[in-house]
């Protein structure tokens, strides 16, 4: 590789960081840039609920402090959103109106909260908790408010509900069967989840849908199709995640639910790779694509994408972890096949 190669990684999660480390280890002289739309450096997202509760400090969230990037001569661009990509010109356009040229690109933008069509009419009234910035902004409100409605079903919602209960809040959850993510629960398992939540003092509503959400002063008036009419201080939505690929659309890079990559994690452009939750990976045996989730999968894929970008020909193993824990239930699932 010539010394003036510029490797750009979009996303500063596990996939992005492992990719950067792999590139740096193999090419000490290359320019490496990570673009992140977060204001905080690489952190443990699953600890955000502990952070909100005040049980974890900012440094406890941090996986890698900023100084490490400097030491490794990796340029970390924080708080910067990619607007679009031109893979033919090999240019990234940032939302703050700056262009960045690359020679090779790895997209590792992860996933973000999904808004189901059934809630789109009142999505402005819904809070989501996905990032450190979300947590930071919402801590005062969460501390202040008493009653919460959680539209949920995804794996993160259960963790959030547990946090609220630990904080002594009154919680009602409306389970959306179509929102169970990253898998569909079998009926008996769903029943066990409901029972577990009820045992913790959570009011669980199922087989119902929100009809309207109206702001009334500081609170929100909720009406469901089955006639529930109640006011809550806050309404949260945890309806699953979708790959962060909006900025890719129209670029020429093939996408479906995620960024379509082959089993080497390469897109339809030779110099563009994708890894982690944003990638939709081809499985030659199944002749289909699968979406990946999870921290460890992202790390594996970030490393492999960087290796292949540097010239290796490694194939991703389409059999990541299948055991997930939901409300105390160990669930063996092959969710990606039916996603």
């Amino acid at each position: 590789m010539p010394k003036n190669d510029h490797y750009v990684i979009i996303g500063n999660g596990p996939a992005g960081n492992l990719a950067a480390d792999t590139l740096r280890d193999s090419d000490p002289d290359a320019r490496i840039t990570i673009v992140s739309n977060e204001s905080m450096t690489y952190y443990y997202r699953h600890k955000l609920t502990e952070f909100i509760k005040g049980k974890a400090r900012e440094e406890d969230l941090t996986v890698r402090p900023y100084s490490v990037y400097k030491d490794k001569n990796i340029r970390l661009r924080l708080g910067q959103q990619v607007d679009k990509i031109d893979p033919n010109k090999k240019i990234i356009y940032l939302k703050h109106m700056e262009t960045v040229s690359y020679t090779k690109l790895i997209i590792a933008t992860g996933a973000s909260p999904r808004a189901l069509p059934s809630v789109s009419n009142f999505s402005k009234c819904l809070n989501v908790l996905s990032t450190y910035s979300d947590a930071l902004a919402q801590i005062p409100m969460i501390n202040k408010n008493k009653t919460f409605l959680v539209l949920g079903g995804d794996i993160i919602s259960f963790k959030f509900i547990r946090m609220l209960k630990d904080m002594g809040k009154e919680v009602t959850t409306l389970l959306y069967s179509e929102a169970f993510w990253p898998f569909s629960l079998e009926a008996d398992m769903a029943q066990q989840v409901k029972k577990s939540l009820s045992d913790k003092g959570v009011t669980v509503i199922s087989d119902d849908h929100i009809k309207s959400v109206k702001k009334s002063g500081e609170a929100f008036d909720i009406v469901t199709e089955k006639g529930l009419n109640q006011s809550f201080d806050s309404v949260y939505s945890f309806l699953g995640m979708i790959p962060n690929i909006r900025f890719i659309l129209g670029s020429g890079i093939d996408t479906d639910r995620g960024i379509l990559v082959d089993d080497h994690l390469k897109t339809n452009f030779d110099d563009v790779y994708a890894a982690g939750d944003c990638a939709q990976i081809y499985n030659p045996d199944m002749k289909s694509y699968w979406l990946s989730i999870g921290w460890n999968n992202a790390k594996i894929q970030g490393t492999l994408a960087a290796q292949n970008l540097l010239g290796a020909h490694k194939v991703i193993n389409p059999a990541p972890q299948k055991i997930l824990e939901v409300e105390g239930l160990k669930i063996n699932t092959s969710w990606w096949e039916s996603f």
């Binding site: 204001s39 905080m40 450096t41 900023y66 661009r77 924080l78 708080g79 910067q80 356009y93 940032l94 939302k95 703050h96 109106m97 700056e98 262009t99 960045v100 040229s101």
Partner: peptide, 22 residues
């Protein structure tokens, strides 16, 4: 305090928003 919608794209590294640090 910076201009987040200048009339045209800055060249690489010429935008102050590109140099934000924690």
């Amino acid at each position: 305090i910076y201009d987040n919608k200048p009339p045209k794209y800055h060249d690489e590294d010429k935008s102050i928003a590109g140099w934000l640090e924690p």
